[in-house]
Design a protein around this nucleic acid. Structure first.
Lengths: 253, 253
DNA sequence: CGGCAGAAATGACGTATGTCAAGCGCACTT
DNA sequence: AAGTGCGCTTGACATACGTCATTTCTGCCG
């Protein structure tokens, strides 16, 4: 596939999607596929796991997958598109909790309160696999690998939240944010140096606990310093190593 | 028991301890006891759960329960004393992650990386129940209530971390911190209005992502406003309701 | 009792980042 | 094509909080 590239524009990256699953195969990049494949479970177990999956979508940009207070019944794996989760605090300020890419799982933070503590909103057209959580935990009691996977998914999410909670300046936060996004895209088989930011500057700012203006300024500075190229929301990391270095205090691995 | 109370000093609260368990009974306040009692498991299951418990301690103030990088084999329930967990980032700055009271569980954030991502240090003389994690997850596959309890414990910890990650000013953070501590003491059967701060101002500051001086100033102001009484580390909440109000954006329930 | 060391409180000052305001560009509607 | 709204950028200014310095308090040990 060869697009033309007019007037110095960044070429568009392929649209990230993890949608190659069917009735008997998981999507390659799904957070759960590993549980079965790696652990050598056979057809019967795979089929059982598939029984409790339901494909849902499309959700269009701005549509809610779930809302704060909805009873917790399922977790969702992103098949395609991007999701942001956010809480609104008692005096109405939104707090973005995270962004989720194809292959990642949302809803894990609802287990304890037994209802969703946040909203989940599609940032672009998005598709999901919905897993009934009661069914999944029942299955987990028979398939240790599934239980293990769930423990690890939640524990990982905990690690992420912890890092974000640290006190770091705007440059560190932004560099870590970009590096983390890049790593997650790469992990799922997409380009780790050129991708589309599906969220607005405002959402990024909110997520990083900065003002939108600060995000603009930091990005401009990164551009001037030759760390990135950026046109609208099309991003190219020109010096990923330096970015990683700047954000290292916020990055686990 | 009746102490005298010289010259306007705050009377000392009883030393919080949750140490009434034995070979066949859990401590009343233990985070796991509920899993069995509430779910109506009988003697055999209780005994099984006890088989994988080992009582450890005492650890004295400043001693490590575990260190960053230690292989993850067990989680720990606090029986008595207080613990702080903290990470040191790549350039040597400490980050306090949390404080843990009797009845609470530490080590859950080690599941994903499969090694402890932080240090755990006793703030005063502390005793623990150590649970082998492999044994516990094996047991969890046979006792859904145990699995459920584990999911909820991790998910709860996730909720805590998320709240701390929000952006809030020093007053809100401090009020929420005090209110949360109070609630947790009360939940475990101790006084929820009068207790001992086992951590230094510096640790509190670090936990709340503030400077130690800011913590001092906020506490002084709270005192002037009649919200609290404070002598050294002995604390009395004079207006818990108002404190809760100030910190409400950081408090889940 | 005296002296010391660490913890805590208080004051003076600097700064990173938030807030306010203005302007630009792009998409969409009429 | 003109109009409208929203997202983004940029500049000027305000402020909450951090940093540095000094003092006070507290517990500890000889």
């Amino acid at each position: 596939m060869c697009r033309n590239n007019p007037a110095g524009r960044l070429p568009e990256p392929p649209n990230p999607i993890a949608d190659d699953g069917d009735e008997t195969h998981f999507c390659r990049t799904c957070a759960f596929s590993g549980a079965c494949i790696a652990e050598g479970y056979g057809k019967p177990e795979l089929l059982e796991l598939h029984c409790l999956v339901e494909h849902v979508g499309p959700f269009h940009a701005g549509e809610h997958i779930f809302r704060t207070g909805d009873p917790f019944r399922s977790i969702f794996a992103v098949r395609a598109g991007t999701v942001k989760t956010s809480m609104v605090d008692p005096d109405g300020h939104e707090q973005v909790l995270g962004f989720y890419l194809p292959g990642e799982v949302i809803g894990l933070n609802a287990i304890y309160p037994d209802q969703f503590p946040c909203d989940a909103v599609a940032l672009d057209t998005a598709y999901f696999c919905r897993f009934s959580f009661p069914a999944m935990s029942a299955l987990a009691t028979r398939m240790p690998a599934v239980q293990q996977r769930l423990f690890r998914l939640i524990s990982k999410e905990l690690g992420m939240a912890t890092l974000l909670a640290g006190d770091h300046n705007a440059d560190m936060r932004m560099a870590a944010f970009l590096t983390d996004l890049a790593a997650r895209y790469e992990e799922r088989g997409f380009s780790g140096t050129r991708f589309h930011l599906s969220m607005s500057r405002g959402d990024i700012a909110n997520y990083l606990r900065l003002a939108a203006e600060t995000v603009s300024r930091v990005l401009s500075r990164f551009r001037q310093q030759g760390l990135i190229e950026l046109e609208g929301r099309e991003l190219l990391l020109r010096d990923p190593e330096r970015l990683r270095q700047i954000g290292k205090n916020l990055l686990s691995h």
